[in-house]
Nucleic acid binder design. Structure first.
Lengths: 230, 230
DNA sequence: GCAACGGTTCGGCGCCGGCCGAAGCTTCGC
DNA sequence: GCGAAGCTTCGGCCGGCGCCGAACCGTTGC
């Protein structure tokens, strides 16, 4: 049984601005070095060390030491999901409609990005809706991959899709779009395939991604995605 | 865009043992008075007042003043879900198998309870699995109510089931069972019907519930629930 | 009216924890 | 080897916050 103390300790891991910044940065699913995170969060390396210790001890992060670097990343998908769930609660507006606030970096992020290990942003939402429209996802009754969708994704990835500890499909509320996009095993495999086949490519070193011309036609054929609406 | 400061502030609401105890108590979905919560958490009334202020200001709780009482309860289902999600991460063991730790109060809770506004515990999990077995829920591809399940539930509640801001069906990870049980609109309507039709009754004033003989036969006929395995 | 009761406000206390810089340790490049 | 770089440990500072009790306010019951 979960005690109040345990719950408070877990929440306490994220209840600090510096640690929160670290976790948000790590939402890209990749491993960062301690120094990168310290600079990102704007604190001294020694301070970052302490925070990373707490986050690792709390099970939210895992570390991998490699030479003189210490890489950390989110421990698992459920850790990422927890942070996403909290962050989702911070954006209660249904449709932003923010006019011409053309901060290009964040505009690129809104257009398309990875969220831990799957696609998000307008691209992720559009892919999800195209799949729903093509009968691959049931989004009315909840959020589930249909048998047809399973067949299609299996043909893409080659390997059989099986739910393990992680569900096959799960809706992940999008920060910027306030709509659900596909997460879970299916979302991860699709994102993996999209990156290896160069349907999407990363922009710079961040988590923003861009749909390539090849990806545009491939996704149109596969799931009926209309890239024009992006 | 969610900032680290916002995230930290939200997490900070739960990052205190007293506030966490309050939120866990409120997970039963009902309204508690400030004094009840103070006694439950073991702090002075003045201390409870401050905590409740913070939780209300943070949007996690709503208050309703009635005479000299101040009732608080969780603001919405997403607040309950957030707390559930955090609590679920605290029980990483797949199968407890705790032997004969017969703390009767918690045993009753494990057997059956309400979780915000739907059924949980062994009862909630058994209902969910019976519905999956009867073809009303798709739990392989994710978590969704099938058209057949929608028909059955509509016949039970009379009113049409429609997803709004809240999904029709959603899996909610059970604290004690570590399996998913049915939440979302469908879970809430089913629980509501089960309580009004006396398929289940509350035990005392807490969140524990018990399956009645009438409920046993009704749920056997409706979803093929085998009450013997409870 | 008056007392009892629930809740709130305020002041004060003490501790926890976040921050930094200095010193030290390990690894890497040369 | 030797210096530079990445990281960690330690000590010390300081602010925030959780706690309580006392005084106060509004409601309820007699």
């Amino acid at each position: 049984m979960a005690t109040a103390g345990d719950l408070a300790a877990l929440a306490g891991l994220l209840a600090d601005e510096t640690r929160a910044a670290v976790c948000l940065a790590l939402l890209d699913g990749r491993a960062w070095t301690a120094g990168e995170l310290a600079r990102h969060a704007g604190v001294a390396p020694s301070t970052a060390t302490e925070h990373l210790h707490r986050l690792v001890a709390g099970g939210l992060l895992v570390e991998r030491r490699q030479g003189r670097h210490r890489y950390v990343q989110l421990a698992d998908e459920s850790a990422a999901q927890l942070i996403e769930d909290l962050a989702a609660r911070l954006e209660p507006r249904p449709a932003p409609v923010t006019g011409l606030r053309a901060v290009t970096a964040s505009a690129a992020l809104r257009r398309g990005r990875t969220c831990y290990d799957h696609l998000a942003g307008r691209l992720g939402v559009a892919v999800t809706e195209a799949m729903a429209g093509a009968g691959m996802l049931d989004v009315d009754g909840g959020f589930a991959l249909t048998p047809y969708g399973r067949t299609v994704l299996t043909s893409v990835t080659g390997a059989e899709l099986r739910p393990g500890r992680r569900p096959l499909a799960r809706g992940c509320l999008d920060w910027t779009e306030r709509r659900q996009h596909l997460a879970g095993v299916a979302g991860a495999r699709l994102c993996e395939a999209a990156l290896t086949r160069r349907w999407v490519t990363r922009i710079g070193s961040g988590r923003a991604v861009r749909l390539t011309p090849g990806g545009e036609s491939a996704l149109r054929d596969l799931i009926g995605l209309d890239a024009a609406q992006l």
